[in-house]
C-alpha cells in the first residue's frame, strides 16, 4: 500500500473542535477467484483498493461533503465511518473514541451518536412496520425512553420536526411518497439524538421539487439541533448548496479538499476543474464547453503514479510514476504534482 498523503495534521486551531477524525483509512476488497480456480488457471490474487489512505477531519456543526464518480469510494468511506464495514487499516475517531477499537458499553454509547440516512427511501423502510414503530426503534434499541406513552409522544414530536403529521405514525410506508419517506428516514435517524449523521446520496432518488424540500429540511435541522453531517453525493450543485467543506475523491484517494467556497470558486486539482466543467447547469445555458476525454479507469488496475494521469491535460513525466504528495494551497489540500513545493499557487490561468 502506498504511504502517500502523509498525515494532515495541519488543522488550524479553531473554535469548532473536530468531531470526526479519519486517519490513513484503507479498504481493500479481495476479488480473487476461489483457491482451486487460481491454482488451475495459474492466476494470482485480484484486489480492489476502494479507499487508499484517506485523511479527513470533520468539525462540529460542519457539513463535510464527499464527491466523486461511481467507483471512487464514497460509499465505502461512509460505511467505515458509521461502523458498518471494518477498514483494512487506519482509524476513525468520533468524539475522541476509536469506533473500530472500542468494545462494549463505550462503543454502544458512541454508536448512538452516529446515524445514517440512505439513498433509497423505498428500500430503507420496512414495509410491514408502521411508521411509529420504525421511528421508535432506535429509542427502544438504546433504551432511551422506557414508558410507552412518552415514547409515543416523542415519535409524534420527531414526526412534526421533519414536517409530517404526528398522526402519520399509524400509517405504513407505502402510503407515503418518496419525499415523505425520506422524511420518515430522517425522523428515525434523529430518534437516538445523534450528533453526527452520514447522508449517503439522500436526494438522488427524489424528484427536483421534492429534493429542495429535503435539502432545506436537512439544513434547518442542522441549525436547530447543531448536527454534523457527512454528506455524500455525486451532484456538485447539491454539494455546493449544502457543504461547508468538500473532499473530492478519485479512485479511492482524496485528490482535493477545501472549504466549499474556495473549491467552487478556485478549483485546484485538474480533476476537480474537469468535474466542475462537466456539470450541465441551468445557469450556463448556451455555453459550449469542451467535453473531457476518457472515463474513470477500472479500480482493480488503476494507473500507476497519480491515478488521474491518463486523463490529465497537464500531465508531466513523473506523474506517471510517482504518487503526488499532499500540497497545501491557501486553505486547500491538493494531491497533485503541479503544486509541489508550494511554488505554484496558480499553475494555470483561472
Amino acid at each position: 500500500m502506498n504511504n502517500q498523503a502523509a498525515s494532515m495534521q495541519a488543522v488550524p486551531a479553531e473554535a469548532n473542535a473536530p468531531l470526526v477524525e479519519v486517519r490513513e483509512l484503507h479498504r481493500v476488497f479481495d476479488l480473487s477467484k476461489r483457491w482451486l480456480n487460481r491454482v488451475l488457471e495459474g492466476s494470482g490474487k485480484v484486489v480492489l483498493t476502494a479507499v487508499d489512505g484517506v485523511d479527513m477531519t470533520i468539525r462540529r456543526g460542519e457539513t463535510y461533503a464527499l464527491v466523486g464518480e461511481s467507483g471512487s469510494g464514497k460509499s465505502t468511506i461512509a460505511k467505515m465511518v458509521v461502523g458498518l464495514l471494518p477498514p483494512t487499516s487506519g482509524t476513525v475517531h468520533i468524539n475522541g473514541v476509536d469506533i473500530w477499537g472500542e468494545r462494549g458499553a463505550r462503543q454502544r454509547q458512541m454508536r448512538r451518536k452516529i446515524q445514517m440516512i440512505f439513498q433509497d427511501p423505498f428500500a430503507s423502510l420496512n414495509p410491514r412496520w408502521r411508521v411509529g414503530s420504525i421511528v421508535a426503534e432506535p429509542i427502544k434499541a438504546f433504551g432511551l425512553i422506557a414508558d410507552a406513552h412518552d415514547r409515543q409522544a416523542r415519535v409524534g414530536e420527531l414526526l412534526s420536526l421533519v414536517g409530517l403529521d404526528p398522526l402519520d405514525a399509524g400509517k405504513f410506508p407505502h402510503e407515503f411518497s418518496g419525499g415523505q419517506r425520506q422524511r420518515i428516514a430522517i425522523a428515525r435517524a434523529l430518534a437516538s439524538e445523534p450528533e453526527f449523521i452520514v447522508c449517503d446520496e439522500p436526494t438522488s432518488a427524489l424528484d427536483v421539487s421534492v429534493q429542495a424540500q429535503v435539502l432545506n429540511l436537512l439544513r434547518d435541522l442542522q441549525e436547530r439541533l447543531g448536527l454534523t453531517y457527512l454528506f455524500i453525493s455525486h451532484n456538485l450543485a447539491v454539494v455546493r448548496h449544502m457543504a461547508t467543506r468538500v473532499g473530492v475523491l478519485y479512485l479511492g484517494r482524496l485528490v482535493e479538499e477545501a472549504p466549499s467556497r474556495e473549491l467552487f470558486s478556485e478549483p485546484k486539482h485538474p480533476y476537480t476543474r474537469m468535474l466542475l466543467d462537466a456539470v450541465p447547469d441551468i445557469g450556463m445555458e448556451g455555453v459550449e464547453r469542451e467535453p473531457i476525454a476518457g472515463e474513470i479507469p477500472n479500480p482493480v488496475n488503476p494507473p500507476p503514479g497519480c491515478h488521474f494521469n491518463p486523463r490529465c491535460p497537464h500531465v508531466m513525466e513523473h506523474c506517471r510514476t510517482t504518487v503526488p504528495p499532499l500540497c497545501e494551497v491557501n486553505q486547500a489540500n491538493v494531491l497533485c504534482h503541479l503544486y509541489e513545493g508550494g511554488a505554484l499557487a496558480r499553475p494555470y490561468g483561472i
Binding site: 427536483v208 450543485a237 466549499s260 467552487f264 466542475l276
Partner: peptide, 10 residues
C-alpha cells in the same frame, strides 16, 4: 427555482 445551481448563492 428548486434546482440547485452552480451559479446561485449557496
Amino acid at each position: 427555482a428548486a434546482i440547485p445551481s452552480l451559479s446561485g448563492n449557496p
